[in-house]
Design a binder for these strands. Structure first.
Length: 481
RNA sequence: GCGGCUGUAGCUCAGUUGGUUAGAGCACCAGGUUGUGAUCCUGGGGGUCACGGGUUCGAAUCCCGCCAGCCGCCCCA
């Protein structure tokens, strides 16, 4: 108290708000996040993926390895704060030793590379967790967000198996979308192949190297930037290809997989693409998702490390919900053995917007139920019955602990019920039942004395015909639930 | 980093050309009626009107700044 470093008493405490682009999760929002994570987990596991995770921050250099220039500007820097040298270095060149993870792939590559020879091949991993990017928040984009990553690493590298694994990965993604209620019409997957696209551009006269990178970047911008400007940028980049200009100008090079390509593309292009995409298409049909898929030859995906198949899940009115592709030389880049790999990521922000747009986001009450936060039992006492009132808290404790009234190990929740009681001053049964109802309790237990109670089923509104002895209460409730 | 719009109670919003002590509904808390599920009645807590300056006898209201949110640009791993 005599500390002279204490702030002056006249200083008003500053009201600190959540940092820009972050979210405070009150019970309903926390339930929504948990529900989403559980859906992601459930679908991943059902498709044979194993859960992994890594640190939420990494050495900043990890993110520089795979060339992303832009990425470094959007890293949240992190440092230990203990080392004066490190602080000095941050002041000197503005770069801390660590960064909050902006994506999972580098961590994944690092983890896989470290244990490559002991892991099954192919190795199917998923994770879901928070990621951080120091961008300007806007619709569908925040600074802290959740992301679901699924990846398939390794395999024999044959074109046939690659197509199988690509298709399997796309299927996980599509089946998730279905599992949250999105129908065939509202889930579309745009698919392309970097190898096919590059060949196409080479044939059009685009030169490998800087020109090719620019061309890919420009294709990625279609729909976001005006045509005239795209063409201008292509020309100022030294690209004279009229083929590219046609692509940029919106020549329709997107076809539903199950449709008649020749009609839309002409015989020559159709037969070339059919040849290139046939293995993947066959596999997508095998796993039953081809009706969602279309080949979109203008899809590039900005990411530099993609080497083959690339895809995006798109929905009208929102930016891409998920995106991914094949990155066959990335593991090697992180010091691992040459390893074919394919993966995708889905963020929670756009997905939530999409579910809201479509009316598929469960209500707050539904979410609390879905994540099992609705009480099993709400305990109260008859009015004007002090003996019964005195038993409320012991009965609550007994039901929470579980059978026999003996304490169980903290990790052993078997038999313990989710039990609540009122903290209100009122003793009116009417109001207490209303409270139980509001909290969506399944049963109300109304104590009548020191050893007996009546049970009301709040779902049907019916009373159990006979009073229940407190000795049998837990067992009876467990059966009824 | 740049531009546009918006900030009044936990939420949705009123608030007149600048004029008493800033309001409603919902939510929350309490009391009453009813009396073992949603009704109804009454009362209560809660706001330095985002924040900081300025103009004015007087500012939620007008001006400037700033912060935050939303929308877009840039960028997208």
């Amino acid at each position: 108290m005599t500390d002279d470093k204490a702030p002056p008493t006249s200083a008003k405490p500053r009201k600190i708000k959540a940092p820009r682009g972050t979210r405070d999760l009150y019970p309903a929002e926390a339930a929504r996040r948990r529900w989403l994570m559980e859906r992601w987990r459930e679908v991943s596991i059902r498709h044979g993926f194993e859960e992994v995770d890594g640190p939420t921050y990494e050495e900043a250099d990890l993110y520089a390895v795979k060339s992303g220039e832009g990425i470094l500007g959007e890293l949240f820097q992190a440092f230990s704060g203990k080392s004066p040298e490190e602080v000095e270095r941050v002041k000197r060149d503005g770069r801390a030793g660590y960064a909050l993870r902006p994506e999972f792939t580098p961590t994944l590559a690092r983890m896989y590379a470290a244990k490559a020879n002991t892991l099954p091949k192919p190795c199917k991993w998923f994770m879901a967790g928070p990621f951080f990017r120091a961008e300007r928040p806007q619709r569908g984009r925040l600074r802290e967000f959740l992301q679901w990553n699924c990846d398939v690493l390794g395999g024999d590298g044959t074109r046939e198996q690659q197509a199988q694994l690509d298709a399997e990965l796309i299927a996980v993604c599509v089946n998730f979308m279905r599992s949250v209620g999105l129908d065939d019409g509202s889930v579309r997957v745009a698919i392309n192949d970097r190898r096919v696209l590059t060949n196409l551009l080479l044939e059009m006269g685009v030169v490998r190297g800087a020109q090719m990178d620019l061309a890919l970047r420009l294709l990625d911008q279609i729909g976001k930037t005006k045509l005239s400007e795209l063409v201008d940028r292509a020309r100022s980049g030294g690209i004279t290809s009229t083929g590219l200009e046609n692509m940029l100008s919106g020549a329709d090079l997107t076809v539903a997989m199950d449709s008649n390509w020749e009609l839309q593309l002409g015989d020559a292009l159709a037969s070339q693409l059919r040849h290139d995409f046939q293995p993947l298409i066959a596999c997508l049909q095998e796993v039953g998702v081809s009706q969602h898929c279309m080949v979109c030859t203008t899809l590039a995906r900005g990411l530099a490390y993609y080497t083959g198949t690339v895809f995006e899940v798109i929905a009208d009115g929102e930016r891409a919900v998920a995106g991914g592709g094949r990155y066959d030389n990335l593991i090697e880049l992180f010091g691992g053995p040459p390893t074919p790999a394919v993966g995708f990521a889905m963020g929670d922000v756009v997905l939530s917007l999409l579910l809201q747009d479509k009316g598929l986001m469960p209500s707050d009450d539904e979410l609390l139920g879905l994540v099992r936060q609705h009480p099993d039992v709400f305990v109260l006492a008859e009015e004007n019955n002090e003996e019964a009132e005195a038993k409320v808290r012991p009965v609550v404790a007994m039901l929470r602990r579980g059978p026999g009234g003996r304490d169980t190990h903290p990790t052993d929740a078997v038999g313990g019920l989710h039990v609540r009681h009122s903290y209100k001053a009122t003793k009116k049964v009417d109001k207490l039942l209303a409270e139980a109802r509001r909290q969506h309790a399944r049963f109300a237990v109304i104590l009548e004395g020191t050893d007996s109670c009546v049970v009301k089923d709040l779902r049907t509104g019916e009373l159990w015909p006979e009073p229940v002895s407190l000795d049998n209460l837990h067992a009876r409730l467990v059966v009824a639930l």
